[in-house]
């Protein structure tokens, strides 16, 4: 164990303090971003930040402060859970948002998903991207052909 008051002890404490400050700052910026950004997907970008990097920093800081084997392993587990679950929930929320029309089209520079869905609907009378694998393949091939002709 590291002796109380030794140089290494001080360094670790300072490092933990820096990590805590940085992680809290990321959480604050995420709050600002989520209150400020104009549409759902942009807000989700802001939300990913404290969930991944901010939490990682705070947990590392906590591990540096506590320095007990058991606790560190639990913290690793927390971070692992977060890293596994954050993309899944982000994908599900993002997809549900897109499919329920929560994306503001006027803010998008490019929207190739809507283009492709429209192309699918032109080729066959289908409404669902998953019902229409063949149509999707065909539509993508057409798009590529048009792109290479141009």
């Amino acid at each position: 164990m590291i002796a109380e008051g030794s140089i290494l002890d001080t360094v670790l404490h300072v490092l933990a303090a820096v990590l805590f400050l940085a992680g809290s700052f990321l959480a604050m910026v995420a709050g600002l971003g989520i209150a400020r950004f104009p549409d759902l997907l942009a807000r989700m970008h802001a939300a990913t930040k404290p969930q991944v990097l901010g939490l990682g920093m705070l947990l590392t800081g906590l591990a540096l402060e506590i320095r007990t084997g058991v606790v560190i392993w639990t913290l690793v587990l927390v971070l692992l859970f977060q890293l596994i679950t954050a993309p899944v929930s982000a994908h599900m929320v993002g997809r549900a948002g897109y499919r329920t029309g929560r994306v503001r089209d006027d803010l998008l520079v490019v929207d190739e998903l809507t283009d492709d869905l429209a192309a699918v609907r032109r080729t066959e009378h289908v409404t669902d991207i998953d019902d229409a694998d063949d149509a999707m393949v065909q539509a993508l091939a057409d798009t590529e052909k048009r792109g290479s002709d141009a």
Binding site: A16, F20, G23, S24, A27, A30, G31, I34, L40, R43, M44, A46, A47, P50, Q51, G54, L55, L58, L59, G61, L62, E65, I66, S89, V93, A96, G97, T100, R102
Partner: peptide, 26 residues
């Protein structure tokens, strides 16, 4: 304005609470 916006916001609140618990613990 939508349920999904709210759930994303609540996720950030949960992340803040996690951070606060870590802070108190430290």
């Amino acid at each position: 304005p939508s349920m999904l916006d709210r759930v994303v916001a609540v996720d950030v609140v949960v992340a803040s609470v996690l951070a606060t618990v870590a802070l108190v613990s430290a």
